[in-house]
Design a protein around this nucleic acid. Structure first.
Lengths: 162, 162
DNA sequence: ATCGGGTAGTTGAACACTCAACAGCGACGA
DNA sequence: TCGTCGCTGTTGAGTGTTCAACTACCCGAT
């Protein structure tokens, strides 16, 4: 009664290499940002998204949607970023339920200071190690997998600051 | 004074798609295992590695090395797995500093029960969505990136149970 | 023998994320 | 007007990870 479609040996090799790479790569990214800029990668991404928004401000739920994060997670994160002086909360004028996260000048400066090291890490650990063809295929793979995970969003490109 | 090699537009698109995919895919994996088998993915992997070891037992540091985890993380994790009755700690006969993690029969049963759902999730979310060529390139990419992250290990294949 | 440096593993605090519950507000219909 | 329902955002508890000590032990050198 086992109708599970197990992985072939070749698939298993790819799978284990892939999942190990993803873990090690994520650790590498996080450690660099934590060491050089005292922020975890997820917080960096929040600052990036805010920095691209008009007025460097976004409703909490929009911010959560753009980053694929839960409202709870974002609320906790913004509280931390507020303590650091990088983000402020404002009331939403059109909807009293809402609250708006605004990137402060300090937050933008912290982001600008963190970006070169982060982008360099990404380049050295990823793009410099791949051929242009591999990069192209990686993009196709990512889109294909993402499409399968749900009726998805957050693909529209965010410009600048990697 | 900016000698940072920034990403091109095309690279940035690939990067954002890739990092979003990795996050969403990891969440997907974790949620499935947590929901169906009450364990996080990292614990599943510990059980997998133990199940392949001779006698289903490994020194803590070997286990940590094989899974790319810190000793601290592994120690906490094994404590949890011990509470669940899935792993036991034994003293190491040849080195009194050491301790040995042993997979219990219950732990093996839990792993066997969790494996089909997990493998099915991996297949549906990843392999079923890619062409054989893309899978092959994904393997190459993973090896290339992993090679760059440090004088690496943990590539030797682990057989069975995905 | 024992001293010193390195290794193995554990611990507790701090941090990040999840989950479930909650309060507050908007929108729509009776 | 008044409910009701759904949405927004926050909160606190529980879980997992990291970091920095710390203990206990092995090993090699003097």
């Amino acid at each position: 009664m086992d109708d599970t479609r197990w992985l072939t040996d070749a698939e298993r090799d790819v799978w284990r290499t892939f999942i190990t790479m993803v873990g090690a790569f994520g650790d590498h990214l996080d450690k660099q940002l934590q060491r050089d800029s005292a922020m975890p990668y997820t917080y960096y991404e929040i600052l990036v998204v805010l920095s691209h928004a008009p007025g460097r401000a976004l409703r909490m739920s929009e911010l959560a949607g753009l980053r694929g994060a839960s409202r709870s997670r974002l609320s906790h994160a913004v509280s931390r970023l507020e303590e650091a002086g990088w983000v402020e909360r404002r009331e939403c004028p059109t909807d009293k339920r809402g609250s708006i996260a605004v990137l402060t000048d300090e937050g933008f400066a912290a982001l600008a200071a963190a970006a070169p090291g982060h982008v360099t890490t990404v380049r050295e650990a990823l793009f410099d190690r791949l051929t242009p063809e591999q990069v192209a295929v990686l993009g196709q793979i990512s889109v294909a997998v993402l499409d399968g995970l749900d009726p998805d969003k957050c693909l529209p490109g965010n410009r600048e600051l990697g």
